[in-house]
Design a protein around this nucleic acid. Structure first.
Lengths: 342, 342
DNA sequence: TAGCTTATTGACAGCGTTGTCATTCTAACT
DNA sequence: AGTTAGAATGACAACGCTGTCAATAAGCTA
C-alpha cells in the first residue's frame, strides 16, 4: 500500500541513499543505475514523502505565497502560476492570505514559517513593498522573491520580478492622446501601493511628451475598489463636466468599471462622449458594457517566473535558470470603452 | 533560534512526551503540569514542526482543498473559509485545482495525497458530485467532505454540506411571479452540474405552485459563463421577443451579467422592460448596472463548516462538534435588476 | 600490471515528533 | 499502614527521508 524509498531500493538492488540521489537529481550517479532506479520508481509508483524530506533535509520542499489583495482574480492567477511550477518541481505550496493592517500579521507569518519550515516565500504587492516584512524575512534568513510594480534596476538584489506599470500607463495614456483626447482624468488606486505612483508617473510622462501640462484637478484619489471608481467619475465629471474631460483612465479594471457605472447613471454615452480605460485585464474587463480597453498583465506567467526564481535561490548555485524573465510590461488591449474624441 | 519540543520539555522540567500530550490536548495530564508546559511553550514561542508531526503521527495535520471551478470569487471564498479553520486548529492547507476533463486528474490527485499524506479533503462542486472521485477516495481510505448542491438527506453518510439551490431558485422565481411576471426565461448552467438541475427544479416547482405550465421554450442551456449568458438572452429574446418574456433568471451571476450585456445591445431597458436575476451574489453582481437581484450564497461560512466537519471526521469520536450546520439555503437579495412587470 | 585518483555507492545517524509500553505516582480503599 | 487500581509520566523506538563519511569500483598513469 504505502511505498517507501526502501521498497524502491530493494527492487532496484541498490541502497536507499542511491535512490535518494536519483530522485534528487544529484550528480555522480551512473546512467545505468539511474535508469534502474527510475524504472523501480515507476513500477512501484513511488512518491517521496514530503514530510520526511522536509524533516531530514537542510532545505525544505515547501514554499509559501503571501498576499494581501482583495482581487480574487489576481490571487487565483498568482496562485495557479506558482502552483504549476511547484507541481513540476515536487514542491508544496502553502498559501497565506493576510492583511497588512492586522497587528498580528507578522506574528502569523512567523508562525507559518516555523510550522512548515518554508524553503521560501513569494511576496505579492502590496506586501512585497513593505520593508517591515522583508526585514523580518532577512532576519529570519528566509529566501523570498518579490513581485513588484516598478521599473527594473531599482535596489534589486536579484530577487524581484518587476511589473512595469509605468510604461503600460504611459502607453495607455498615449493611446488616448493620439485619439485626440486633451483632458484626461485619472482615478488613482491606494496611495500606499507602489503601482499607484508608477501608473501616475507613466500618465504624467505621456502628457509631458505630448507637451501637455499636468493638472492635479484631473486626478482623483481612489482605493482600487469599484465604489471608489464610481466616486472618482462623479467627482471628475462634476458640475456638468466643467473640466471638459473626454477620457478617464482607471487605475485598475474595477475602478474603470465603477467609472462606467457612474457614467451610466449620469447618462453619459461610452465611448461616444467619454472614453474609459482600465488596467490589469481581469475577466470582468470583458464583462462590462462596453468592454474595457485595458492593459493586460500576465499574472500567471509572472507568478511562474517568481516561483522559478525562488527555486533557483533556494537551491543555491546549481540549477541556475538563466532564462528567467524578471521584468514584464503589461500590453494594452483596445476594446470598446475607448475611442476617438468626438 | 529553532525551538523544539525538547527545549520546551527542559524548561518545563518534564519529558518531551508530556509536552506532546499537552500540545495535543490529550487527557490525563495534571492541570498543574499542563500550565507549566503551556507557560514554557509561550515563553519560548514554540511552534510544533508540522513535518515531524505528519511523519511521526498516525493522522496528519494537512488537509486538501480540491476544486475545478473557473469562478475566482468562489474559489477564494472557499479557500479562505477552510484556511481560517485550519489556522485555528493548527492544520495546513494544500490546494489542488484540477480539471475533470483532464485525463491525469485522478493520477494527480493520488500523487498529491501520497506526497503530503493528507488527513482529508474538502471537495467542491462539480468534483464533489463525481463518483469516480469519491470511489477513489473510499478505496484509498481518505476522509473527505463534500460541498454539494442539493437537498439534505439524499444518500448522506454524514460527510456532506448541502447548498439548497432548489429552495433558493424556488424563492427567486416566486419573487418574479409575485411581481406579475408570467413568462420567465431561465438560462441554465452546465448540464453536468448538480446545481443546474436543482435550480431548474426549484424554478419548475415555483411555476407549478402558481399554476403556470412549464414550457421548455423558456429554457436555454448555458455554461455558467458570461458568454453563454449573452447567447442565452439573445436566444430567449429572439425575433423581437415572440415569447413575450419579461423576466430572465440567470443560473448564476455571470450569466445574468451576460444577459444584461445582451439586453443592452438589444436596447432593452432593465428592469423596466425586462427583469434579470442572478445567483450566488458574487462581487460583480454589485458591479453591473443595474445591480443584480440574486441569491446570496455564504461560501465562506459554508467552507468553514466543511472544514470543521472534516476535522471531526479525522479526529474520530472525540471532539464531536455537534453544532455543525450541514445545510444552507441561499437567501435572495433584491437589487435593481428586477422589478414589477410593466 | 601495479598504484593512484576520482567517480560511484553504501552504512548509519539524525531530523522533531508521536505511539507503545513500562514505570512511577496518587488517592481511595481495606 | 498496606494495598491497589488508575492516573500521570517517562524511555525509547519509529516515521521516511537526507547528510556525512567511509568503502568500493572504475579509470587513468606509468
Amino acid at each position: 500500500m504505502k511505498v517507501t524509498i526502501n521498497d524502491v531500493a530493494r527492487l532496484a538492488g541498490v541502497s536507499m541513499k542511491t535512490v535518494s540521489r536519483v530522485i534528487n537529481k544529484e550528480p555522480s550517479v551512473r546512467k545505468k543505475t539511474y535508469d534502474t532506479v527510475m524504472n523501480a520508481v515507476k513500477e512501484l509508483n513511488y512518491q517521496p514523502n514530503l514530510a520526511a524530506r522536509n524533516l531530514a533535509g537542510t532545505s525544505s520542499f515547501t514554499v509559501g505565497l503571501v498576499y494581501d489583495n482583495p482581487n480574487a482574480y489576481y490571487v487565483i492567477d498568482m496562485q495557479n502560476g506558482v502552483l504549476s511550477r511547484c507541481k513540476d518541481e515536487g514542491y508544496e505550496l502553502v498559501i497565506h492570505p493576510c492583511s497588512y493592517t492586522d497587528p498580528n500579521m507578522e506574528a502569523d507569518l512567523i508562525t507559518m514559517i516555523k510550522r512548515s519550515r518554508l524553503a521560501g516565500l513569494v511576496l505579492t504587492p502590496p506586501l512585497s513593498e513593505q520593508s517591515s516584512i522583508t526585514n523580518l524575512l532577512d532576519e529570519l534568513n528566509i529566501h523570498y522573491v518579490r513581485v513588484l510594480a516598478g521599473r527594473p534596476s531599482d535596489d534589486d538584489q536579484g530577487s524581484c520580478i518587476y511589473v512595469n506599470d509605468y510604461k503600460a500607463a504611459y502607453e495607455i495614456t498615449t493611446h488616448l492622446l493620439t485619439h485626440g483626447h486633451e483632458n484626461i482624468g485619472f482615478i488613482c488606486g491606494d496611495k500606499e501601493h507602489k503601482s499607484t505612483s508608477e501608473r501616475l508617473e507613466g500618465y504624467k510622462a505621456a502628457l509631458a511628451d505630448h507637451h501637455k501640462e499636468f493638472d492635479k484637478r484631473f486626478i482623483y484619489d481612489g482605493k482600487y475598489s469599484f465604489e471608489s471608481g464610481v466616486e472618482g467619475a462623479k467627482n471628475l465629471l462634476a458640475d456638468n463636466n466643467t473640466l471638459a474631460i473626454t477620457a478617464i483612465l482607471g487605475g485598475n479594471d474595477e475602478m474603470a468599471a465603477g467609472a462606467l457605472f457612474a457614467s451610466r447613471l449620469m447618462g453619459i454615452a461610452i465611448p461616444e462622449q467619454l472614453s474609459i480605460t482600465g488596467f490589469e485585464d481581469s475577466p470582468f474587463s470583458r464583462q462590462t458594457w462596453p468592454k474595457l480597453t485595458t492593459a493586460h498583465q500576465a499574472n500567471d506567467v509572472i507568478s511562474q517566473h517568481a516561483a522559478r526564481l525562488l527555486f533557483t535561490k533556494t537551491r543555491g548555485a546549481r540549477n541556475q535558470d538563466k532564462d528567467i524573465i524578471t521584468s514584464f510590461t503589461p500590453s494594452i488591449v483596445i476594446r470598446e470603452s475607448s475611442g476617438p474624441k468626438q
